[in-house]
């Protein structure tokens, strides 16, 4: 009896949860697109939907950790650009591809460490540090590449970026799924993941509980740099080219995907399931809009509106519900305690 009530309560909670709403929105978009375009649900098209956004959704995974931790990283897109730039410049200078990729990844790690040191140990706000990082790293790309474009990548790098490696899956998607599983285990089933939540909820409490706050923040930002570097390399390999403006503005879309997944911008709550559902929703929505000949810029506007409504509507609904509850309780209270209250008032007036 008790347990079945608990189960039904859990079911109710799930149905009211953000993940459930996202799931139904995602299904609706999928069905709508499928009815309009017969080939929509084929594996090939679904892979294509993912493939065009593979780099962004890879970075969205680590961004989830960072936002749950109560921080933000605006510099990811510039790190992507910088690492693509390092790769391009080194290849241009005749360095072997393996070394060039390694150098790009190390560059990303250093960028992440730079951000992380200022944020964790100098205790500066991540919004400003990574804003400065965003401007600075993008500036370094401009210094390195200036206004040219670099296209002379070796064939094997282009092959890795553009062709299916395992069955129908391209490398970037395989990396995404491996990282997704890894991130899920770390965030939801490890001590480290719990620390990430605890710090996001209350940094001081975490510190007094003996959580190594600074170390964890440093690890998160360093990882963010490394993953962004990986995404930048994959992006350059997919396009087979890079410019100084490569990946410019990606940070906004990445952050949008994470926030739409129900992750609290002030930290402490959110889940990777939500982010995955939000990624599925956004990608399929974009794909559907592309099929309906809506331009990329207009799609961005729709996603922006979705982001606002995703917080606004639950807020307003919650307030309406709270107001209704308040009135109901006030009425009930007035009916039941009216005589008693009168007595009290009299007593007070004496």
């Amino acid at each position: 009896m008790q347990s079945s009530r608990l189960a039904s309560l859990r079911r109710m909670q799930f149905l009211r949860s953000w993940e459930a709403i996202l799931f139904f929105v995602f299904l609706a978009i999928l069905l709508y697109n499928a009815t309009r375009v017969p080939a929509y649900l084929t594996v090939g098209n679904q892979i294509n939907v993912f493939y065009l956004y593979a780099e962004k959704i890879i970075v969205a995974l680590i961004m989830t950790f960072i936002i749950i931790n109560g921080e933000i990283d605006l510099s990811v897109a510039s790190v992507m650009g910088l690492c693509a730039g390092v790769l391009g410049r080194l290849l241009e200078m005749g360095v072997r591809g393996e070394y060039a990729i390694a150098a790009a990844l190390v560059t990303g790690l250093l960028c992440g460490l730079w951000n992380g040191l200022w944020i964790a140990y100098a205790r500066l706000s991540s919004l400003i540090v990574t804003l400065a990082g965003m401007i600075m790293f993008r500036g370094l790309v401009w210094v390195m590449v200036e206004d040219r474009s670099i296209t002379n990548f070796p064939a094997w790098i282009n092959h890795l970026g553009q062709d299916a490696i395992l069955g129908p899956f391209p490398l970037s998607l395989i990396i995404f799924f491996v990282l997704l599983i890894f991130a899920y285990i770390v965030l939801h089933h490890s001590a480290f993941g719990r620390y990430v939540y605890v710090i996001g909820n209350n940094r001081e409490v975490a510190r007094f509980s003996g959580v190594k706050v600074q170390q964890i923040k440093l690890i998160l930002f360093a990882t963010s740099g490394l993953i962004s570097a990986l995404a930048g390399v994959l992006y350059a390999a997919r396009l087979g080219a890079m410019r100084s403006s490569t990946a410019e503005g990606f940070e906004l879309e990445i952050i949008t995907m994470v926030l739409l997944g129900g992750v609290n911008i002030f930290g402490g709550s959110g889940s990777l399931i939500g982010v995955l559902l939000s990624i599925l929703t956004v990608l399929n929505l974009r794909n559907g809009m592309s099929l309906a000949n809506i331009t990329l810029q207009q799609q961005t506007g729709v996603i922006g509106a979705l982001l606002i409504f995703s917080v606004l509507v639950p807020n307003l609904a919650g307030r309406v519900r709270a107001e209704l509850n308040r009135r109901r309780f006030a009425r009930l209270a007035a009916e039941q305690t009216a005589p008693a209250e009168r007595k009290e008032v009299k007593a007070e007036s004496k």
């Binding site: 906004l252 952050i255 949008t256 926030l259 911008i265 810029q297 207009q298 961005t300 506007g301 729709v302 996603i303 922006g304 509106a305 979705l306 982001l307 606002i308 917080v311």
Partner: peptide, 12 residues
């Protein structure tokens, strides 16, 4: 969140 959204909307 709001201004991230309206940034995209106004640009559109």
């Amino acid at each position: 969140i709001t201004t991230l959204g309206t940034m995209a909307i106004y640009r559109t």
